[in-house]
Design a protein around this nucleic acid. Structure first.
Length: 629
DNA sequence: GTATTTAGTGTAT
DNA sequence: TATACACTA
């Protein structure tokens, strides 16, 4: 309850995005529509000018046009006979990126909404808090202290009393939590300005102590405004708020509550005993409702700026219902194609790969929903199409010798989930680690990396790597000098090596290596910074008591750090597993080769096994090399 | 004759 | 884990 949570909600987001492409839509009643054959298509977003005509989201476009003949209509792009909302996804990602510049505690809640946990930022500011001037909160309202009545009979140019002045007074005299909300609102004003500066998009916001209250507050003043909801105003607000207006109560549960208890407001819900709620709904839900109507909600803001799944589906209603195996296969192929395009874009931008695929369908008979899933091992269209089709075949009641399919499908879709990091070092380590110790024994990091902060870190690394390999005539590659105390020469560290070092910097602990010869890296100036050779060198280590590798020189120390990362030490450490290098490496080499006019990475190693030296070499494209598997 | 659609998250079993 | 379902914008 001492937390400060904000919800940012983009105002009629799709309309704003379309206005960027069609500036003539600015300041006019405008809607965004998807499809057109049936009654002009469905309305997805409505500008505030158009809302005055009574146009609502979910209406059909023909209906909307009747309400406002001069309505501007933007249509969602279509690819392969299916609506494609990538434009809005990309715009949404830009907004998240902008917010994340100020704080990483951002949860993407939908394509146009994000929760922000401002608690630590606010506590920072609290330390050197002087006063906050009303003029810094121009677009802020305070629920319960504002006075909408004040100007009702006055001219429109007189603004409603926002309540900010009164709230500042309250903050100075009373509760620290109100002051926190005030500081939070100041930060949100800044965030909203930043979003506008970066993207040109306007948004509304709510500032309160939890997600549910922030969401409710956000809806109180729109568009391009923000609202503080202090704890002291919650109960009186709840007296006029319908149960179904509250987040997560807008569906069947909300209906159930209203009809079971013959009530309609959150205030009334407060009069119901915990026991009764738990009896009607189950212990967990009952407790949750009991807390919620008292303004309590403990759901944390998850630090997550990327989607957990990427999906692609379409309805086939009425006559469109899919009635043949070939049409189903065709659509699966379209979906797989779109999905793979998005998955590859995601892989590039966010360095992660989906590990599970789900095919879902709704059958016309009984409108029964079904889904089947399988482990996704490679991004391959044909594999996805045949696997999903074969799984669906089990629901086909027609003879499989004919093309006829029964019951017809009214919905079909594919969804990719269970994302895992593709780690830059992992492919190198997978190669260097003997086969028999890979897989189970050596499970790379599977903690989801879904924040932009981390993703952009990775992105930066990739471009360094690309630069490293792609600059064909780089006489003096960007070099950082490392001096060693007792070494006779200065070692030059090229960008790729630097990258590994940088990764190490974020990792305090190191991995114990046992019974190994360590590998040494040298920068080869003759090849203009394009290759490394990794030679064996002598080094001993402290036997496990200390996690650090021992070495005689600073130089060795640096090298060992690099090698730790090379073999995936960082990842093992995170999983609290100890990695042992069973086969001593005598040498390893990473280099760039030109094959078929393409730059390829070649990695080779010599490992000693039963006094035999085993030589292995592999060549991959740069992209393959840096992706997992 | 039909008809919000599509894409997400979270929970229960 | 697999599947179904609820809820949301």
């Amino acid at each position: 309850m001492d937390d400060v949570i904000a919800l940012i909600d983009m105002d009629c987001f799709y309309v704003q995005v379309e206005r960027k492409f069609n500036p003539e839509f600015e300041n006019k009643p405008c809607i965004v529509v998807q499809y057109r054959l049936y009654r002009g298509g469905g309305v997805l977003a409505v500008s505030y000018e158009a809302r005055k005509f009574g146009i609502k989201r979910g209406m059909m476009a023909d209906e909307a046009c009747e309400l406002c003949p001069e309505l501007c209509i933007a249509r969602v792009q279509e690819t392969n006979g299916k609506a494609n909302i990538q434009r809005y996804r990309d715009a949404g990602a830009d907004v998240i990126k902008s917010i994340t510049k100020l704080t990483p505690n951002v949860e993407k809640a939908s394509v146009d909404e994000a929760y922000i946990n401002l608690t630590s930022l606010v506590n920072e500011r609290l330390k050197n808090y002087g006063t906050i001037d009303e003029s810094l909160l121009e677009n802020t309202f305070v629920e319960g202290l504002n006075n909408p009545e004040a100007d009702k009979n006055l001219s429109e140019s007189v603004p409603e009393d926002s309540g900010v002045k009164a709230f500042i007074k309250v903050c100075n005299n009373t509760c620290i939590n109100n002051l926190k909300l005030l500081l939070g609102a100041k930060i949100v004003e800044e965030i909203r300005q930043e979003i506008f500066k970066d993207t040109g998009f306007r948004c509304s916001a709510g500032i309160s102590h939890n997600k549910t209250l922030a969401k409710l507050a956000c809806g109180l003043h729109k568009p391009n405004k923000q609202t503080i909801l202090p704890k002291s105003s919650v109960q009186s607000l709840f007296n006029v708020i319908h149960i179904k207006q509250i987040r997560n109560l807008g569906g069947k549960l909300g209906d159930q509550i209203c009809s079971d208890l013959k009530i309609s407001t959150m205030g009334e819900l407060c009069n119901i005993s915990l026991k009764k709620l738990q009896h009607l709904y189950n212990d967990k839900t009952g407790q949750w409702i009991y807390d919620l109507c008292r303004g309590r909600d403990i759901e944390p803001v998850a630090e997550r700026q990327l989607s957990k799944s990427i999906a692609c589906s379409r309805n086939f209603r009425g006559p469109e219902a899919l009635k043949s195996a070939s049409s189903i296969k065709n659509w699966l192929s379209n979906f797989a194609e779109e999905l793979l395009e998005r998955l590859n874009k995601d892989l590039n931008e966010n360095k992660r790969k989906a590990k599970q695929m789900v095919v879902c369908a709704k059958m016309q008979i009984k409108l029964e929903n079904v889904s089947r899933s399988w482990p996704l091992t490679k991004y391959c269209k044909e594999a996805i199409v045949s696997r999903s089709f074969n799984l669906l075949l089990k629901f086909n009641q027609s003879s499989q010798t004919s093309d006829r399919w029964f019951p017809p499908l009214v919905l079909l879709g594919l969804s990719a989930t269970k994302f895992e990091d593709v780690n830059i070092t992992s492919s190198i380590s997978t190669f260097l680690v003997p086969q028999e110790f890979q897989s189970n024994r050596f499970d790379y990091d599977t903690t989801p990396k879904t924040t932009i902060k981390e993703a952009s870190k990775e992105r930066k690394c990739t471009s360094d790597i690309k630069d490293f390999f792609e600059k064909k005539s780089c006489k003096e590659p960007p070099i950082s000098m490392i001096t060693s105390s007792n070494s006779h020469k200065k070692r030059r560290i090229g960008p790729l090596e630097k990258l590994w070092k940088n990764k190490q910097l974020s990792n305090n602990e190191r991995l114990p290596l046992t019974g190994n010869q360590l590998v040494r890296t040298d920068y080869d100036s003759n090849t203009e910074g394009k290759s490394f050779s990794l030679d064996s060198c002598k080094s001993s280590r402290n036997n496990g008591k200390d996690n650090r590798c021992q070495s005689d020189t600073d130089d060795d120390e640096n090298e060992i750090e690099i090698i730790d990362i090379l073999i995936g030490g960082e990842k093992s450490e995170m999983k609290k597993k100890q990695f042992e290098w069973k086969l001593p490496l005598s040498s390893a080499n990473i280099s760039l080769e030109e094959v078929d006019n393409c730059n390829k990475v070649s990695v080779s190693k010599d490992a000693r096994r039963d006094s035999q030296v085993e030589h292995k070499k592999g060549t991959k494209s740069i992209r393959e090399f840096f992706s997992k598997n």
